[in-house]
Amino acid sequence: MVELVIFVLVGSAAIGGALSVVFAKNPVYAAMGLLGTLFSLGVFYVVNLGHLIAAVQVIVYAGAVLTLFLFVIMMIGVDRVEDTSEPLRFQRQLVIGLAAIMVVTVGALVFGGEFAWVPLSVAGPIPNGTVENIAGIMFTDWLLPFEVTALLLTIGAAGAIALAYYAPGAPEESE
């Protein structure tokens, strides 16, 4: 019962946030809407006992990524009038079509009984060890993919810096 109440409350907050990302006139309010959605997702993870994922969600997305978004919005000027002309033709029609397909698919799943409401039932005390479990799997069975991902991220960061700062033939910049 509690789970259902939380789902309805937080779910509507998530959808409301997502709608305000699309419809907000001001980019700062759009970013705030995104913050609401990301935070609501974090609450969903907590409800499903994924405490670690919830914490990481809030730190990485709500904390770091969105702060950068806001920083960029403020750097390029919040009050500038936006260019709303659409370079891609039929963009709107395409989006409306895709949205309709998604609504029909989700509706078919929900009303076709494929998407059942399964209340979380844990026998005995609620497991308080998602961190240990994730760490155990990540550093044994999935060690290689984990390390490769880390390497990939480092290469990506280094590549971004190289692309931004390196111009062939240009003299070395000194500070």
Binding site: H51, L52, A54, A55, V56, V58, I59, A62, G63, N128, G129, T130, V131
Partner: peptide, 11 residues
Amino acid sequence: DLNVGVLFVLA
């Protein structure tokens, strides 16, 4: 007492 207390503080 959260099992992710340290991360909660950072968040």
